[in-house]
């Protein structure tokens, strides 16, 4: 190897990485999965969901934005961190209205899959049952705000991959939500069915119309294998 490398420790395992990598990227390459929702392979890091929280030399950091460093000691699968991750997933469930039983994304949903992976049977926090709407104005795409987790994957995909700016955040704090780049809603934007943005939404919030429930139960993405298995599979190679 002629490139410069740094070596660091994750949960007792030694990992080599390139100095410009984030902890998450380096761990992915080494077959160590760190749970995540807002981080996505082809998009710039964002750091909003905090599911990837780890401790770096004892200090909490988001693995998706924190760069590696020579000799750092990263804790990821500790009881404390796993509990924090479960709490964050619980928060996302109670913040919105996630009725998985009729959701088109069920089985392929990353939020649901993360809850499965972390063994969550029911959120410990009270449901907020917020009143949120749906934007079905566009012929091929819809937004169901009930399920949005504010990860900005649609915003980033539209800008970084689709070369558009169809979405953005408005409001602040608990009133924050995704909005479209037009006062007329989705139909007023240049979003179209060839966009990648709906495909990159982790949940059933930004979706292509008319392709729900296409895959039978049992054959969906996370029916058999937990989210992150693809990364962990690399361990053996």
């Amino acid at each position: 190897m002629n490139e410069k490398t740094v070596t660091f420790i994750v949960d007792g395992k030694e990992i080599k990485a390139r100095p410009e990598q984030t902890i998450m990227k380096a761990c992915d390459e080494a077959g160590v999965y760190i749970p995540r929702l807002c981080a996505f392979k082809d998009l710039s890091p964002f750091g909003s969901c905090r599911v990837c929280t780890v401790k770096v030399n004892g200090r909490p950091q988001a693995a998706c934005t924190q760069p590696v460093g020579e000799g750092i000691v990263v804790e990821s699968q500790t009881a404390e961190i796993q509990q924090i991750r479960r709490n964050i997933i619980d928060m996302l469930f109670v913040e919105g209205n996630h009725f998985c039983m009729f959701c088109e994304k069920s089985g392929n949903c990353e939020l649901q899959a993360m809850a499965y992976r972390l063994g969550i049977l029911a959120p410990k926090f009270p449901y907020m049952f917020p009143v949120r709407g749906v934007d079905a104005s566009h012929p091929d795409i819809f937004i169901d705000w009930n399920r949005c987790i504010l990860c900005a994957r649609c915003i980033r995909t539209s800008c970084e991959i689709d070369g558009k700016n169809a979405y953005g955040f408005i409001g602040r704090g608990p009133h924050k939500r995704v909005a479209t780049n037009s006062s007329a809603g989705l139909k007023g934007t240049d979003a179209d069915v060839s966009d990648k943005a709906p495909a990159n939404c982790p949940v059933g919030s930004l979706m292509y119309k008319r392709i729900g429930y296409a895959v039978p139960i049992g054959c969906r993405l996370y029916d058999k294998n937990p989210i992150g298995s693809d990364i962990e599979m690399k361990k053996t190679t």
């Binding site: 750091g47 909003s48 928060m91 996302l92 109670v94 009270p126 504010l150 955040f169 602040r172 608990p174």
Partner: peptide
């Protein structure tokens, strides 16, 4: 804090609402 959170990250956006409650 509920009103002044920017809402960017989950724990602050949701957690403060839950604490207040």
């Amino acid at each position: 804090f509920v009103e002044e959170s920017c809402g960017y990250c989950t724990p602050c956006r949701v957690g403060n609402v839950l604490l207040r409650r």
